[in-house]
Simulated assay, not measured.
Amino acid sequence: MPEVLVWRELRKRPGGFKFRRQHPLSELVLDFACLECRVAIEIDGRIHDHGDRPERDLRRIAYLQSRGFEVLRLPASFVLKDLSGAIQTIVAACNGRLPLHHQPAAGGPPPRSGEVLKEAK
């Protein structure tokens, strides 16, 4: 249920970001992902606190980070209590990852064909 609520909001492209639901990545399937910002969003129910789930989640986070993703884990209880706050948290995480591509330092390589870089003032 929390995933359905989040998806209803993410489909509206909050913050101008495009999100994917149930996005496959190698052997994993992410609850949600913003590929532009490389943010993986996981909605965690209480099951994630039991058994071997905490260790599995840590391995999953390490793997995703090795692939350049920031992992945002939101408790399902938070989503159900404050959907607006959850969406704001997601958008803030995406904003925090921009820009992924920085302008080269002075004396760095020239822009590729078709790229236009703004002059520093």
Rank of each mutant, 00 (worst) to 15 (best):
C34W: 04
L98K: 15
L64P: 00
Q22I: 04
C94W: 03
C94N: 04
V6P: 05
L83S: 08
V91C: 05
S113P: 10
P111D: 02
G45M: 04
L117Q: 10
E9D: 12
G68Y: 03
Q88K: 15
Y63F: 15
I47Y: 14
Q103R: 14
Y63N: 01
E36G: 04
G96C: 09
R56Q: 12
K12Y: 05
R59H: 07
A120I: 13
A92Y: 04
R13N: 13
R56I: 07
R59S: 06
I47A: 15
D52G: 12
H101W: 09
A33D: 01
A40P: 01
G114M: 02
L100H: 09
R21S: 11
S84L: 12
T89M: 12
V91S: 06
E36K: 13
P75L: 08
E55L: 14
G107M: 08
K12E: 11
Q88F: 12
E27P: 02
E3V: 10
R21W: 04
V6Q: 05
R59Q: 11
E27L: 09
P54V: 06
L28G: 01
R59F: 01
K121G: 14
Q103W: 03
R13G: 02
E42N: 07
F32A: 04
R38N: 10
V6F: 07
E36D: 11
E27H: 14
A86Y: 06
G15R: 10
L25Q: 05
G16D: 04
R60A: 03
F78G: 01
V71A: 01
N95R: 15
I61E: 10
P54A: 05
A76N: 01
V4H: 11
P54Q: 02
E36M: 12
V116G: 01
A86Q: 06
K18R: 15
D49N: 15
P75S: 11
E70P: 00
V116E: 01
A33K: 03
A62T: 11
T89G: 05
L64K: 04
E9Y: 10
K12Q: 14
E119N: 14
L74K: 00
A105G: 05
G15I: 12
F17V: 07
